[in-house]
Amino acid sequence: MKKTNIKTIAVDGLITSNPTFKLVLGTCPTLALTTLAINGIGMGLAVTFVLICSNLLVSLLRKVIPNQVRIPAFVLIIATFVTVVRLVLDKFMPSLYSALGLYLPLIVVNCIILARAESFASKNCVLYSMADGLFTGLGFTFALTVMGAFRELLSSGAIFGVKLWDFEIAFFSSSAGAFFTFAIFIALFSYIESVVKKQKKIKDYAELVKLKEQSAFVGTTEAK
């Protein structure tokens, strides 16, 4: 069993169980909204906010909510915060609100949030649950922003709305391009992770060998 602390939660949420690249959750907004980097950030931050708040409440109420009605209770809590996000966005950021459109209310049924509530927040203390919400949300935001920036750069030659060059490959703004980009990024992410893991293993092994040599040396001196 892994020990739970803030550091493992952060690594888990951002890398080892990154919701988009490792768990492949919430693919619907991932595929549909990553046409622009700014959409990715907006959606990611909206989800992060809902995640933190819902994890907080679910964790607070984890001893009150009976096991039989936990899913309806979670959905109620999540739906409340999604509505809050919608109201706030409509009031203060109307352009982002209309860009996210239908996908904003759909956060309610986003499996990332339900999964974190079910598998983490309902079992852990408040502080850890909030940290988990924050880092999972940031992992999602990171994934969406990177994909959005890649697709925006190739499909319109701009990044965050700043035009860099006048050359576009419309393929990447189509839905086929969304699937393609998603696959490429999953592959890239897994590759980088495996390389890092391999390096770590080599390092660990070298340390182990060193330790063994030392203990062997100690053993021989003692025998003498």
Binding site: E168, I169, A170, F171, F172, S174, A176
Partner: peptide, 9 residues
């Protein structure tokens, strides 16, 4: 098809 979709504009 890639060319057709991408550079149609």
């Amino acid at each position: 098809i890639f060319i057709f979709i991408s550079f149609q504009t």
